[in-house]
Every structure is written in structure tokens, then in C-alpha cells.
Design a protein around this nucleic acid. Sequence first.
DNA 1: GACTCTGCCACAAACGTTTGCAAAGTGCCG
DNA 2: CGGCACTTTGCAAACGTTTGTGGCAGAGTC
Lengths: 367, 367
Amino acid sequence: MPVTIHDVAQRAQVSASTVSRALSASHLVRGTTRERVLAAARELGYQPNPAARSLITGRTGNIGIVVPDLNNPFYTGVLRGVQSRARQGGYAVFFADGEEDPVAEEALVRAMSRQVDGVVVCAPFASDAQLRSLAGLTSLTLLNRRLRDIPAALMDSAGGMRQIVDHLAALGHRRCAYLNGPNNAWSNRERRRGLRAAASRARMAVVEFGPFEPKFEGGVQAADLALADGVTAIIAYNDLMALGVLSRLADRGVAVPQEMSVVGFDNLLYAAVCAPPLTTVAMPMEAGGRAAVDLLLSGIDGTGDGAGPHRELPTNLIVRATTAAARSRSARPHVDNRRPAAGHAASGPTAAAVHRPSGGRSAALPE
Amino acid sequence: MPVTIHDVAQRAQVSASTVSRALSASHLVRGTTRERVLAAARELGYQPNPAARSLITGRTGNIGIVVPDLNNPFYTGVLRGVQSRARQGGYAVFFADGEEDPVAEEALVRAMSRQVDGVVVCAPFASDAQLRSLAGLTSLTLLNRRLRDIPAALMDSAGGMRQIVDHLAALGHRRCAYLNGPNNAWSNRERRRGLRAAASRARMAVVEFGPFEPKFEGGVQAADLALADGVTAIIAYNDLMALGVLSRLADRGVAVPQEMSVVGFDNLLYAAVCAPPLTTVAMPMEAGGRAAVDLLLSGIDGTGDGAGPHRELPTNLIVRATTAAARSRSARPHVDNRRPAAGHAASGPTAAAVHRPSGGRSAALPE
DNA sequence: GACTCTGCCACAAACGTTTGCAAAGTGCCG
DNA sequence: CGGCACTTTGCAAACGTTTGTGGCAGAGTC
């Protein structure tokens, strides 16, 4: 029923091979016959059968993407970037939601591998070995995950943390809390690493809590812990947690940013529209998706811009209304059950000492 | 390089056709040889080449989905449902973001059509004619769009509106505002229709504003207009607009829900976590995605549960903290620039009279 | 005028799978 | 023991495309 290359050939009075060449390697056919073929193809509405083509060429014209959680706006941003760049390069995209299960993720990539020319994987929980084994199946590009020999698009989380620390330090904050996301998430380790380095350089004390579920509820839970410690600023693993923190602080009657500064990470839509608007680090989600596809395609057909195997994208601190100058210690009248704010200023423990969370301070969730 | 059916055949000492049959129509081969073939396939890690298969069978094992905007959490919810049900049925899914452009949407479906067995399309802006023409290319299922002869999964927006009206009426509200989403969006027309019917039955007056951009900013813009009219409750086209309304009302010093009730539509994540938590109608996004795939598959291979061509999913009003009993007229001290609240109670105009927005009240955006 | 060279085109093989058909084997009945 | 039905298997064609090879014509060269 659908029109094949032979129908076009017949109409244009040429052989099928000429049609094929006229549609691709055009310099091998005479100009006039090429016109004739193109006209015939247009009139018949010819669309090549991708299955037949990929059978002979070994290429599919598709790429895949697997994400851990479609509910997370971060990944839908990535998805957007991936899709837009892929379409621009003439590729269609398969997608799959691993539902935060590394074995499901692996199975999905495995299933896709025969139908795609490559896949970009966002797999914060998968093991290095798993990823390497998948790289043997089809060409891979990672997102926010650094692994030797496998190309990756990375977002400069550490740089974002540095900007946060500089910002808070300039506002006079000397002691901050960091609310960890999942310990096995690559990006949490990366953000923590960047924070520790920046804090140590800025001589800022950092108290760590968690790990927590990287969601609103996790932030609610974490807020009380941070409040009890006497910090003047809270840095959350991501925006969802930061929103939870804001909600809990409001319930407890702690004014943000006057009494407590709060910073998130990701710059989701809702960071801009919540009250008060959240200071956060913008992650280049769409750009990350685009870059990942660029890397993938350059590995496949040299179409990409052929930069190195790893590309790091800049992040930017967006200062909104949840950060302000650190409050003086005495000005906290109505937080009832707080601990005495012992030695929280310059006289407190050094950053290095506080980095390792003690049993009491850390471990809000079983690890 | 990859292992083919012939490799398996050789190892199992049978012909390729026997391997093929052993892997599918198992009753045609003897039990013992089937075992042998299966073992050989397992040992070699054989994965059939989908291109070759689809070339001969004419089926691809893929479905597609096109959505108008990946940034909208509503559609990512649908996406999740689609993907999960598709995987369960052994299908992989292509996706494409039409970026709210009907012609792009059409082009995407057209491009996909050769690689998929069917596609579910969420195309609130496409014309009926466009959709019908696409239905000729491949089998289609619509989401939230009713069109004769084309199967569709529908969410009962009208029912949701009825629940809103009943809820508000029970709280004593007699005059409400509706903030229209885009006029050419099917779901806005549907919600408005449901609202008008329910309001007329409940003898509630409805003043309409808009259309507005169905985003936060649209809500901000709309809030002032509704406030000026003297309504006691605002029903927004969707949650994003409702959040904008909340933000603007807070800025204007209008207490929610004491002085104004606000209702959204969709039940996005953020409706639950904003302050105060938003009363809204839960749309069954994932269930809708699942249902759409069910319908699609039953059209393709009889795999679905074979219900009728249209399936309507129930919606539920989630009452949270933005709705309360209507304020009495005198208790509005600090809204400065409001109009005199003339005749807004039972003595006011009938519902039918107010339904057609007059020039002065409507048209906040050029149409 | 015979040779080579070049431009253009058709023929046919190949990709990996499914499937109709025939052949071979087996068991049963008359 | 021949014929028949039935089961099990292999052969080969087909799906629609790309691409290597070869042929044919015309032009150029000696």
C-alpha cells in the first residue's frame, strides 16, 4: 500500500538504484534525471522505509534517552534539549523512564540498543561497571556523570557551589548547613565536594545533614535539624528540598531571609514563583541535553562539533529573595526549641572539622 | 558483528526458519528442538534485529507520542503513563515535543508515521481537519480531544468543574470569576462549558475573563481584573495560573481564603506544596496516558481491553486551603481600588446573563 | 580509427527476518 | 503394505533499500 522506491522509479522512468542515488549522493546522477526523480517522489509522496534502510546501512537514525524519573522537572528539561537537538540533526528519539531503578535502566538500554545509533543516559544511581558494560552495546553519552573513555555532558555543580559560598560569605554568613540528597547520587557527591572545597577556601563552616529524599518532604524534615544547629544559612541539595525548607520555616515562624537564608539548586520553574522567590543555582538543563546529543552524534557520524569527550557547562547563581545578610545572634526571639548557638562564628570549629558529620548531626535517614 | 538468527541456527543444528518459529510460534516445533534453540539463543545473547523483522512483518513494535509542551508538568505526567503502559505491552516509545506549533506537530507525526504502529497525540491546538488527515497515515489516539471515529482518552473536565461549583456553592459563594486559558485550546472550551452548565444549575453567577496565557504570569495579570469585579472566588483555567493569582493576591494584601477563594485545575505537584496549599481538581494524567495507549494497542493488535473508542476518566476535586466560606461584603477593609460590589448576591444578574462576557469584562488579551 | 577516459545508468547482491510451501519422517488404519 | 494424516523441518521467496560492479555511450587523444 505505501509507496516504495520502485513506484518512484517507474514513474520517473529510471531504475530503483537511480532513485536512491538521486535522493542521497546526488552528484552521481545527471541533473535532469535527478529533477525527474525528485518530481516523481514529490508527486507520489514517497517516504523511504526506515526499516529497509537501516537493515542495509546498519544505522537507524534514532537515538535514545533514559532518565531516572520523569516526574522530576530537571529531567524533562534535559529531555527538551535532547529532543530539539536530535530533531535538528535529523534524528528521532526514543525515551524511557528507568523509575530510579538501575536494573530497569540497564534493561531499557539493552532493549533500545538494537533500534538506536546511540543513547544518552542519565543514570545517577547506576554503577560504573554497569555503564561500561552498556557502552559495549551501543554508543553512549552520559549526563552529569564522569567516567573515563565515555563522553559526557557535565554541569559545573562545583562551580555553582562556589558561587553560593561566595555569595553567602559576602553576606556575612560564617556557618551554613548543607542538606544532602541521596548519597549514591553522583550529583550529590559532586555538589558536596564543590561545597567543601569552596567553604574551606572561604573559611566557612559547613554542617552536613542527611542524606534525605531529594523531595519536598525531605526538605521539611531537614529544616528542623538545621534550625536546631544555629546556622544562619541552609543550602539544599535541590530546589524541591529548598521549597520544603521554606515551608517548614514559615510554619515555625522563622522569617526568610531575615533570620535564615535558604539556597536551592536547579532553578526549577517553581523556584521563581514561590514566596519568597528562591535564590538558587541555574542548571543548564536544556543546554545539557543538547550537548549530550552533540557528543553522541559526533561519535556516531562526525556530525557533532567534535569537541573532546567531556564537555562541562557553566552554572549560574540566581540571587532572588531568600538570601540576605546574616542575622546577628541575639535577633532570634521566637524560635522556641533551638539549641544554644555555641561557637557558631569565626571562633567555631574549622570547616574541615565540621565537614565530617558526627552521628548526632548527620544520619537523618538510614543509609 | 552482532549475532544473527543464522548463528543461533548453526549452533542449534537447525535451520534459521526453525529458530524463528521456536522463538515465536512455539507449537510448530518439537519440544526438544525448541529447548535446544532457546539454549543456543541464550548462550549467544541473540537479540532479533528489529529492522529486519519490521521489514517483513510491517509492524515496528513502537508507538509514538507527541505533546505540545514538555515544560508543562501535565504532559510529563501523561508521558509517564504512556511509557509505562507501552513497556508493559512490549512497545518502545518515540516522543516529540511539538512546541505548541500545530504545523510542527503535524510534521512530527508525519515523520514518525513510518517508524511506529500508532501514535497518541496531545494536540489541543490542531484543527480537526489536520487530525483527520494524520489519522490516514497511521493509527491515532487522541488525548483530551473528542473527534468522531478517532479513539480518545478523555478526562472529565466538566465533571471537575461541577465539583468545583458544588463546593463553592456549599461555601456560600454566589458570584465567581473564571480565568480563561487559550481560547483555541480544547480543554479550555471544555472546562468553560462544564462550568457554565454547573453554574447555571447551581444558580451561581460566573464572570469570565481572558483568554490569558495559561502560565503564572497570566494568573498574575488576571488576578487584578477578578479582584476589581467583586467576586468572592476565582476559578483558574489551570494550576499555574492559580499560583499566579495567589502570588498577586498576596502582594495586594488580599487574604486567601478568608477574603477570596481560589481554585486551580490539574493538581500539579506544586499545588500541594505552595502556601497556602491550593484547592484544585486532580486530572488523571498518568491514567490518561495509560488509557490512550490501551486504546491505541487495541486498535493495532487487539491487545488492549477493547473498550469503546472513547474512554472518559473521572476527575476529583482536592480541597486544600485556598477555599473557605464566602466573606461577607463589609469585611474587605484593605483592598483599595475595588469597584463597589453592586448586586453580587442572589439579587444579582442570573447566571445565564453573566455567562457571555461583555466587552468591558472580558478580553484582557487580544484574541 | 582505435584506444582510453568519463559520466551516467541498470543489474544484482546483500542486509536479517518471517512465512508459504514442500519434503521428510512418523504413526495409524484399512 | 500402501495410503493417509499429521508433525516437524528446511528451502526459498519476500520485505524495501543501498551499493558494488559493469556496461554503454560520447568525448578526447594519439
